[in-house]
């Protein structure tokens, strides 16, 4: 029997004896306003009730629930190469109480990579599971909530065609940044996708054997290039509304681009909320925003810089050229 899941959200999806299982957490009225999905969950799990009492269901139960309660519509997808301002975009969207922003939500990633852990899982199943997970996370829990936005993990751009099939016609953006600055950030604190193991080497245009002995920084530089390449190819092949956005555009132009792309229609009440989000450090909102472009460029090792130039520069320049052609030089 499926339990009463009003106010509960799928916190994690894990594999148990070869089957995906859904862990539900009671979120009550708590909104997803933290920079990342997991931070909201961790905050909630500080209450002993949420930690001790968690429902567990099959994936089928999640899918069945989605048929009955589809949740709010998905209105935008935010893709990015990592360390390029995407958290600020998520925080801007989350600053408006009518939005539910799922920022790098674990269940979304688990479903997108389900075929890697569960042989035989088809694209059709992944799409069904993805819609069901997002639908459950995007249930209206406050009367003013109207729309869901997904800020995806960096590697999810490699699954753009599948995400577009799951959410047809939904506008999307791809954010990127100077590859040397991104490399500098990862050298300081490496993201999960910069380590071999997370991504299917085929996605990166590599044979499994090619990974052996490949230095970590080279692997990372090639991952970033593959992510940007997928963003550019997706943009060129777009059939709906999409935008490319460079990190340097964010502070002066970000709000305008988001407003146009996602049809935000900000009200007078929204202006201070958005201004407030723009002025804070997105990943640590208690701190003010600081442009760290110069600091990052200074900090990167000469080897890291050379790899970023070799693998990242050509695709970064191609993205910029494409963006400037479409934006008319903005």
């Amino acid at each position: 029997m499926t339990p009463d899941l009003e106010g509960w959200v799928p916190a994690r999806i894990h594999v148990d004896e070869g089957q995906p299982r859904v862990d539900w957490c009671h979120l009550g009225g708590q909104r997803f306003t933290d920079p990342f999905f997991d931070e909201t969950l961790e905050r909630r799990l500080r209450h002993p009730f949420a930690l001790l009492f968690r429902h567990q269901t099959s994936m089928d139960a999640l899918v069945e629930r989605h048929a009955r309660q589809p949740g709010l519509p998905v209105r935008g997808l935010v893709f990015h190469m990592s360390r390029c301002g995407s958290t600020l975009v998520a925080q801007l969207l989350a600053a408006l109480p009518r939005h539910i922003v799922l920022s790098e939500a674990g269940p979304v990633d688990t479903v997108l990579r389900a075929h890697q852990r569960l042989p035989g899982v088809t694209d059709t199943q992944r799409i069904e599971w993805l819609r069901a997970a997002v639908g459950a996370l995007g249930q209206q829990r406050h009367p003013e909530e109207r729309a869901v936005f997904l800020k995806l993990d960096a590697w999810h751009i490699l699954e753009l065609p599948l995400l577009q099939r799951a959410f047809p016609g939904v506008p999307w953006m791809f954010l990127y940044r100077d590859p040397v600055e991104v490399m500098a950030s990862h050298q300081n604190h490496r993201g999960a996708h910069m380590l071999p193991g997370l991504l299917d080497p085929a996605h990166l245009g590599l044979e499994a054997g090619q990974l052996e002995g490949m230095p970590m920084d080279e692997y990372g530089a090639r991952v970033l290039a593959a992510i940007c390449d997928a963003g550019l190819r997706g943009y060129r092949a777009r059939t709906g509304t999409a935008r490319l956005m460079d990190y340097r555009q964010l502070q002066p132009e970000g709000l305008r681009v988001l407003t146009e792309l996602f049809g935000l229609e900000p009200t007078a009440e929204d202006a201070p909320r958005l201004r407030d989000a723009l002025e804070r450090n997105a990943k640590n909102p208690v701190l003010p925003f600081e442009d760290d472009t110069e600091e990052k460029a200074r900090r990167v090792s000469s080897h890291g810089r050379a790899l970023a130039e070799l693998w990242g520069r050509p695709i970064h320049d191609a993205l910029e050229a494409e963006r400037l052609r479409e934006d008319g030089g903005l």
Binding site: P3, D4, H26, G28, H47, F49, F53, H55
Partner: peptide, 11 residues
């Protein structure tokens, strides 16, 4: 987990 009233009381 089966009783919403108990859940409310604990929450």
């Amino acid at each position: 987990l089966e009783d919403v009233t108990l859940q409310d009381a604990l929450r």
